[in-house]
Design a protein around this nucleic acid. Structure first.
Length: 327
DNA sequence: AATTGGCCCAACCGCTCCGAA
DNA sequence: ATTCGGAGCGGTTGGGCCAAT
């Protein structure tokens, strides 16, 4: 179809954002909540396109972003998830609530990719990781995560995360790229990512920047403004709707599966920076999710495997030569 | 002290998806 | 069923920073 750029080139400012622009943007979002990005430059007078405003917010200004060096644990998570999900940075970022997909992508491209390359060049004494799911829709891998894809609801089903369609991994289901297989599965599971807990501790996160978290300059930020339908994007949000599709929750610490045939509902975000719940039912739902057993990917993220990765990365030359052991 | 080259990361570009009309 | 516009995602770029020379 082809469509013109989201913004006309004329009169649209590009390049680095100034502190003044940041404050204008944050002030506006404080009052109106994130979302409806089209209206942002119009209502604020910012000479930026809507896309630029959204990116600035999601990658830099929103609360809860952690900046600075990645820990070895985070590295392990990224490498592992990248092997499982491919370059699905938004999905990977959902397991690292304090990191943006852009940050993870940059870190992968500038650090981790090199490390892995170096490691492979050094001898490849370990079995190579499986090809990224996107490389072959027919390649079946065991995805320990409880992501179950519905053909009509998930944009990623095409390239996928192929599935061991018949295997139930400790109660968790593999993602599936095969529509025929996908549509057969009707089970939904939803658990709260263990890393969502990290997000709740926004106050302790290091947000080092020249603006030093401009949002904090504004008193009572995100407290006075009720969450909107698009508030889900910030990583500090945890989705309360178990039927929400995966592609709508990138950036959250929630793991989802799908129920084919169930109408995709509008997201009903629960802002967790505070932490507040929409209502009692939601709170109970959250508690229930806490009680559910962890699926294996989350186990991996939590248990000794991750520590093993960190330890081995520390011991190995260049950092991550041992990671393929995980596969 | 000046220059150069590599690294890093914020931001842009282009594409796809999805919902509304 | 088709078109259109908003939003999101992943790839890429360009400019600033910094270490090496």
């Amino acid at each position: 179809m082809g469509r013109p750029p989201c913004c006309h080139k004329v009169g649209v400012k590009k390049g680095p954002w100034t502190p003044e622009e940041d404050i204008i943007l944050v002030s506006y979002i404080q009052e109106n909540g994130p979302g409806n990005w089209r209206a942002v430059p119009i209502n604020t007078g910012l000479m930026r396109c809507s896309k630029s405003c959204r990116l600035r917010w999601t990658n830099y200004l929103r609360p809860g972003i952690r900046r600075g060096n990645f820990t070895t644990h985070e590295e392990g998570i990224i490498v592992h998830l990248q092997s499982l999900l491919g370059n699905r940075w938004a999905a990977i970022a959902s397991y690292l609530p304090q990191r943006t997909d852009n940050d993870i992508k940059n870190y992968w491209n500038t650090h981790l990719k090199k490390k892995l390359k170096k490691q492979q060049a050094m001898g490849a004494i370990f079995a190579p990781p499986p090809p990224p799911p996107s490389s072959s829709a027919e390649t079946a891998i065991n995805l320990p995560g409880a992501v179950h894809l519905d053909n009509h609801h998930h944009r990623y089903h095409h390239d996928a995360i192929a599935a061991s369609s018949s295997t139930v991994d400790h109660g968790c289901y593999a993602a599936c790229s095969n529509p025929e297989v996908t549509q057969q599965h009707t089970t939904i599971t939803m658990r709260r990512s263990p890393f969502a807990d990290v997000a709740a501790d926004c106050s302790s996160s290091s947000y080092a920047s020249s603006m030093d978290n401009i949002s904090r300059l504004l008193d009572g930020f995100m407290k006075s403004s009720p969450p909107t339908a698009t508030d889900v994007k910030p990583n500090i949000a945890v989705v309360s709707d178990p039927f929400m599709s995966f592609d709508r929750i990138s950036g959250t610490g929630t793991e989802l599966a799908f129920v084919p045939g169930v109408q995709q509902q509008q997201q009903q975000p629960v802002l967790m920076g505070g932490i507040s719940y929409d209502d009692e039912a939601t709170r109970q739902q959250q508690q229930l999710h806490h009680q559910l057993p962890l699926c294996s990917i989350e186990k991996w993220l939590l248990d000794e495997a991750a520590e093993q990765v960190a330890d081995l990365m520390d011991l190995s030359d260049g950092g991550c030569s041992s990671l393929p052991l995980l596969y």
